[in-house]
């Protein structure tokens, strides 16, 4: 079966991918957020599996994660909410979460559930590429799941090539040295880094994330890659405007 992620990257430009923490703002918002995002024109969705200790995340996602946990979100709960979601949602769905909750659920069982639901891929920021290749790649492949890796301004050319070879779907390009969060514009150092990566002509398409918050940052990210991922800014929006207004947010970016 074809992976929906490949389809989107083949057919679309300026891909808009949205991240949210499952279980936030309210425990049962997950499927309505997915539907609203799809109908408003988002191209891809990252469903955040909340974790108590999200090392790579800034204050906004830390807060939404812990609120989700307080609301009662668990791995099992999320899978239950997502059951049957493919009847209505046809854009790629990715689960983004830290490794410990996945480990405790059981990696194999987790992959089986993902396949059953129709998840296309995973992003696990604290699962190193080498460990993935040695211990889990076979399992992911068996279940048709892509595992996407990150690169940062500090990633060496040698390692970028190594990651490119190990990658399927897309490479998640972290826009700056930093945790997730909202920034209003890119600086020269960042644009230089974007250009550098673009000129490497990698086999795997790239998409830029961290610090994308508005039309301006989305457009400039899309100049250098296939699109962008927005997380913190969307979560802020959800907090203030709520799920029903999601189309306003997507419109403000497009």
């Amino acid at each position: 079966m074809k992976n929906r992620i490949d389809e989107v990257f083949k057919n679309k430009k300026k891909i808009l991918s949205i991240y949210f923490s499952a279980g936030h703002p309210n425990l049962e918002d997950t499927t309505s957020i997915l539907k609203k995002l799809q109908s408003s024109g988002a191209d891809m969705i990252e469903i955040g599996l909340p974790f108590s200790d999200p090392l790579a995340d800034g204050p906004v996602i830390q807060k939404s994660s812990s609120k989700a946990l307080r609301n009662g979100m668990t791995t099992e709960k999320l899978f239950n909410q997502l059951e049957g979601v493919r009847k209505e949602i046809n854009i790629p769905l990715i689960i983004m979460g830290y490794f410990n909750p996945i480990m405790q659920y059981g990696v194999e069982k987790f992959c089986e559930k993902c396949k059953l639901i129709g998840i296309d891929g995973l992003i696990i920021p604290d699962l190193p590429v080498s460990v993935y290749k040695d211990d889990y790649k076979e399992l992911f492949d068996k279940h048709g799941l892509y595992n996407m890796f990150l690169i940062t301004p500090q990633t060496s050319v040698e390692r970028i090539n190594y990651i490119d070879k190990a990658s399927k779907g897309f490479i998640y390009m972290v826009s700056s040295s930093g945790v997730t969060g909202v920034k209003s514009n890119f600086n020269e150092v960042q644009t230089k880094y974007f250009k550098r990566i673009k000129s490497m002509n990698l086999n795997t398409p790239t998409i830029i994330g961290f610090g994308i918050s508005n039309q301006q940052t989305f457009n400039s990210a899309s100049e250098y890659s296939s699109g962008a991922i927005i997380g913190s800014a969307f979560i802020n929006f959800l907090e203030t405007k709520g799920v029903v207004k999601i189309n306003e947010f997507i419109k403000s970016i497009r």
Partner: peptide
């Protein structure tokens, strides 16, 4: 504790069944 990941290391740690660190 149970085997899991905390602060970048695979080790024994106190956590919920769902893998949230306590």
């Amino acid at each position: 504790g149970k085997e899991g990941i905390i602060h970048g290391s695979k080790t024994l740690l106190m956590q919920t069944e769902d893998g949230q660190i306590t």
